[in-house]
Design a binder for these strands. Structure first.
Lengths: 324, 324
DNA sequence: ATATGTGATGCACAAATGTGCATGTCCGAC
DNA sequence: GTCGGACATGCACATTTGTGCATCACATAT
């Protein structure tokens, strides 16, 4: 019964996938209806008789750029995808995929993982494919925002990563920005929230995006803050942010009143994490990435060739600022 | 340039084959047209980024039946596909496929290969998949018929096998039945034909079907012969044929006037070939297969469980005929 | 400047594939 | 027997995919 099927399924699969006959043609040849062939093919796929494998393109990477990044900014590592991507959408997906492929190496031996949020991070989560479960705990690196789609919610992202890794996660039930410094203090001292925030001091790994201040994160974050805050940011010449913490193109943290209300992992805290992986690319983020690198906030960068070239060029170009 | 594509192709392939999005959905996500996705997918397949592999069903075989066949009829080997196939069409394809898979083992070290003709043989040829070329010479085992489709022509079949194996072939330009014994003699002594016919004495391997006389080979052969010949065959109680040579259910060659006109490898000649592989199955061929086995004309049988059970049962049942 | 060719692009249409459903079939329980 | 359920079958229809073609962009030769 089943053995008949085995050979038959294999035969049909061969005719369909190897000889590229249509289901109708196979049906005619075998004296079976097209529908039957269709269902048998489905069964063949289910039973694993047909195995579709995707060969990852021989990981061509821009080793020289990676080495230069490491040298120049004291990184523990870098991965630079070759080529130039004109579409932001495509680039995000490519970087997300690349990050997902690297993830097994990155999380190896890690217990507490902090996760940022953003579209590229989400793309990464969509492509994670891990065999054995890892006993990790995933925590968000900052509070949430209510005015964005559910799938971008920090808690949804940590949940997703934990699920993909087979570990646990901690959700944060605090806003990324409190109404006042006092409100922040109150919120952060709340036991449930404190237990998450306290974990920021004992992370083994943080995975973050890099925002380019004005219009960052689909500008959802920017929509959250007041006009005065925006002016502050502009005046401070913020080049970008990591974990919502702004810094200038030299890597100096921006002194903003906003900071006192932020419920987010701090830059100095971040520097103490053994491994901070940033995923970021795109011409618009050039200044932001450069700032993050100069500030030594990140220790591993996943980006693309065109962007990295821009970053390195910009670094050469206005290196005098640093000396000044 | 190409490197951009590599990652992108892989990404698209992943979305399509792993996440099972439609081409349209992928296009929307990436901001590319459906057509572009379509073409990139084609390219991904061409470049081997998508690899579709067919896992042959764990070669479940009826070892016990194979052993019994070997023991009972002194075969060098047998392969019995499990199950019962109600459709002749399906059975032919399954047997052809099975034979094609066995072929590499069967031809190993062989130089001169004789090939019969028939629908199952053709199916086998359709599935041959060999890596390195074999230095073989393929010859037909009997003459041709003009009243059948071109793809069933003996010369087409030997050509096809030779092509699949990467070897050479000899075509025969003689009819399977001459008009008279004298005509046969003349034809066979023609140098070009003789050189092929002479090879029947130095074959290392023959691959044949088994016909069940009346209505054999889509009855094309039967349409070729006269009414008197048919009566002769009926009177001689022919059970089947190999290479057009008729025999009874006991395996005795039929003494027919027709034989004197046949341009086909003889049964005694066949017995001298080190390895004769027959591919045959189906209830209707029970008697024919039994006759071929009893006559020891074949040394290797590829068939199916249901048929073999019938054959063995029939053998037990009328074994007394042999003793008589 | 003007031809010329090569390749990318998207469209209309054709072909192939997938799916919910009504019907039919088989088989065991009662 | 007959009832009920699980499952197979084929159909109409919806979705998805594939393809020939006209168009356009761009580069190279004339």
């Amino acid at each position: 019964m089943t053995t008949v099927n085995d050979k038959l399924l294999y035969l049909i699969a061969k005719l369909y996938y190897e000889q590229e006959l249509t289901q109708q043609e196979i049906g005619d040849q075998l004296g079976l209806s097209r529908f039957k062939i269709q269902r048998l093919l489905t069964k063949a796929r289910e039973q694993g008789i047909v195995r579709i494998e995707l060969v990852p393109p021989t990981d061509k990477r821009c080793k020289h750029l990676e080495a230069e990044l490491q040298r120049t900014f004291g990184l523990k590592g870098a991965v630079v995808v070759p080529g130039e991507y004109r579409s932001e959408q495509v680039l995000r997906k490519v970087l997300g995929l690349t990050a997902a492929e690297l993830l097994p190496d990155l999380i190896d031996g890690k217990r507490n993982i902090g996760l940022g949020c953003g579209r590229t991070i989400l793309e990464m989560l969509n492509h994670i494919d891990i065999d054995e479960p890892h006993a990790v705990t995933v925590v968000p690196l900052f509070g949430g925002m209510e005015n964005i789609e559910p799938e971008f919610q920090v808690n949804a992202l940590v949940q997703k990563l934990a699920a993909a890794l087979g570990g646990e996660y901690r959700a944060i039930y605090a806003p990324v920005i409190a109404g006042s410094a006092e409100a922040r203090a109150t919120i952060v001292s709340d036991p449930m929230i404190k237990s998450v925030v306290d974990m920021w001091d004992c992370l083994d790994l943080a995975i973050v995006g890099i925002g380019h201040s004005i219009a960052t994160y689909g500008s959802a974050f920017m929509r959250t803050i007041s006009e005065k805050d925006k002016d502050d940011i502009t005046n401070a010449e913020a080049a970008g942010d990591v974990c919502r913490q702004m810094f200038s193109i030299t890597g100096e943290p921006c002194k903003l009143e906003l900071n006192s209300r932020l419920i987010a992992m701090g830059l100095e805290q971040l520097k103490r994490v053994p491994l901070v992986v940033a995923i970021a690319g795109g011409k618009a983020k050039t200044r932001a990435i450069l700032g993050a690198l100069r500030g030594r906030y990140i220790k591993f960068l996943i980006s693309d060739e065109a962007t990295v070239r821009h970053v390195l060029a910009l670094h050469q170009e206005n290196a005098h600022i640093l000396r000044a």
